[in-house]
Amino acid sequence: MSALLRAELLKLRTTRTFVALVAAALLLSLLIVVLIVLLSDEFSKQEAREIFTSDFSSLFILVLGIMGLSGEWRHRTITGTFLAAPERMRLLTAKVLAYAAAGALLSLIVTLSIMAVGSLLLSIEDKTTVGISDLADVLWRNLLVAALLGALGVCIGGLLRNQVVAIVGVLVVSFVVEPTLVGLAPDVGKYGPLLNAPNGIIGINAFSDDKPLDEAVAVLVMLGWIGALFALTAQTLRSRDLV
């Protein structure tokens, strides 16, 4: 398993995709933080804390995870991958773990960067700053969400082999379906895997006045989604003939 995991991490490091997505997530997250700090008036302590949840790494790692498996079909490299690692269940597990690790790393880079820049700007603007303990609290939550979404992305990419369909699909669910659902039926919508359950982990309340899921429950919900999609993907991979 460790060899497969190292191979998947090496795959990530040997194309430009990961670097490009880190750069894009970093630039977008920094832009949002700078605009919020400069264009808003005074913040409450909670609002100041929420600035640092503007971490776009989650969305990017979700897309990266999708590309991690669906890309094997897109580039027709899946045959070689299965020849090198014929136990498909172990391969899927390695990919899930690799993209969870990549998600955490990407989020670490982005979150630390926006915390450094944001805190500096808040001080310069003489606005409410966030203490180290609160920053640490935001950091681990962001990392956890990114890791879980990286794993979820791999499973989605294994189920929907068409990369474009998979990416457009998760964007529609993230930006349209889940916000709408949590507004109309919050008791159901808060269990959504791409936006609302992650918000429960981060501890923010978007698109609804209702309280989000408790963080421990939100983690279990995410793990449940990952487990269910992992099982479906594993079954699909096991039974699929590569012709």
Partner: peptide, 24 residues
């Protein structure tokens, strides 16, 4: 196999490095 394919952005050496890590 007939449809041997490689990630277009990965070099030949890195393709082999990935396989080398997988196979030990």
């Amino acid at each position: 196999l007939e449809d041997a394919a490689f990630h277009p952005g990965r070099s030949g050496r890195n393709h082999l490095r990935v396989l080398a890590v997988t196979g030990g």
